[in-house]
């Protein structure tokens, strides 16, 4: 796996996971029925922003001029409203991260139960803005969803035939909801296993996690199956060559092992794990449910990383079909 592919994998998986984690916290915010519930859920607020930072480090690590990239792309995005799909993506991500930071602060600096309530002065100030937490969360969720859509369409160029189909959008949304929600579920589960408190809120959160995970895994199965058939749907000979190479790399080439492992770990085992979560949740056996939730997150994360490595690793841009350019010239009648 090349360093560029690693960067794309880290950036896309973790940025999408960050959006999903924020959505999970939004859900938790609405699920909380008391201060005790909120206190239990608060730990989950630690996920979104650090994960977004990992994503930003990932993408900047492959730029030739990382600092200039950060400055010019962000500035251009704000000044010109996006000069390209890539700068639109940066703009959406920047706005999302700003809102996510505000939302996280409103959780972590809560004067009564925030992890950082020991901080001088700030909790008292933040406490006055607490009614804004849910609206900020809703806004961040909406911006996050816009970011996911822009991020997917940024890759859907006609010169990238393997990305230029609707499955790319599905993959990005699935990663966000699957990895993000299970990540928050896993963090809360670990908290429960360590403190043995919060049976009720954890139970509610894990039911939601299970529901989202099962739905997203079904969507993922459909998207994965559609992807291989859509990769054969290209009409131009030039694009078909690129897609053929992508399919070969995926099904029998360098990334075939990753592709199979993605199906086994990220889809099969994850689906079994997600469904298995229902049994301990029904029996109110929270310790078992918490352990399964942690395993589910690990399986999902490994599966998503493998899947994204396949997506970027097997991607063949039209420009890389140069050795077969004769086909292109002959289609033009030259």
């Amino acid at each position: 796996m090349s360093s560029a592919v690693t960067s794309y994998v880290i950036f896309t998986v973790f940025s999408q996971m960050s959006v999903g984690a924020l959505i999970a916290m939004m859900i938790a915010d609405f699920l909380a029925k008391s201060k005790d519930d909120e206190k239990f859920f608060e730990t989950g607020a630690w996920v979104s922003v650090p994960v977004a930072v990992i994503a930003l480090i990932g993408i900047l690590s492959h730029e030739a001029r990382p600092i200039q990239a950060m400055m010019t792309m962000t500035m251009n995005s704000f000044i010109f409203g996006g000069t390209s799909m890539l700068s639109n993506e940066v703009l959406a991500l920047t706005v999302f991260v700003i809102l996510a930071v505000v939302y996280t602060i409103l959780w972590l600096l809560h004067p009564e139960y925030g992890s950082l309530k020991w901080f001088p002065i700030f909790p008292a100030i933040v406490g006055k803005f607490m009614p804004l937490r849910k609206p900020v969360g809703v806004l961040a969720t909406l911006v996050g969803l816009v970011f996911l859509y822009i991020s997917a369409t940024a890759y859907m160029m006609y010169t990238l035939p393997s990305f230029n189909n609707p499955t790319t959008i599905f993959f990005f949304f699935v990663t966000a909801l699957l990895a993000g929600v299970t990540a928050v579920g896993a963090v809360l589960s670990v908290k429960y296993l360590m403190k043995k408190q919060g049976d009720v809120p954890l139970g509610r959160m894990l039911w939601v996690t299970m529901g989202i995970a099962v739905v997203m895994l079904v969507v993922l199965i459909i998207a994965l199956m559609a992807q291989t058939s859509m990769l054969e749907a290209e009409t131009t000979r030039y694009a078909a060559m690129a897609q053929h190479e992508t399919l070969e790399g995926m099904l029998s080439g360098d990334y075939a092992t990753f592709y199979m492992a993605r199906w086994v770990v990220g889809v099969g085992l994850a689906l079994v794990c997600a469904l298995a979560l229902a049994l301990p949740l029904k029996k109110k056996s929270m310790a078992t449910a918490a352990m399964i939730a942690v395993v589910l997150f690990v399986l999902v994360l490994v599966g998503e990383i493998l899947g994204r490595a396949v997506l970027f690793g097997t991607n063949v841009p039209l420009g890389h079909v140069l050795p077969d350019i004769g086909g292109f010239y002959s289609t033009l009648g030259l």
Binding site: R65, M157, T159, G319
Partner: peptide, 17 residues
């Protein structure tokens, strides 16, 4: 101005960048 993001390499149908 170039930051070396490689996006043009994906966009070009001739692999020129």
């Amino acid at each position: 101005k170039c930051i070396g993001c490689g996006y043009c390499g994906w966009a070009c149908p001739f692999g020129a960048p």
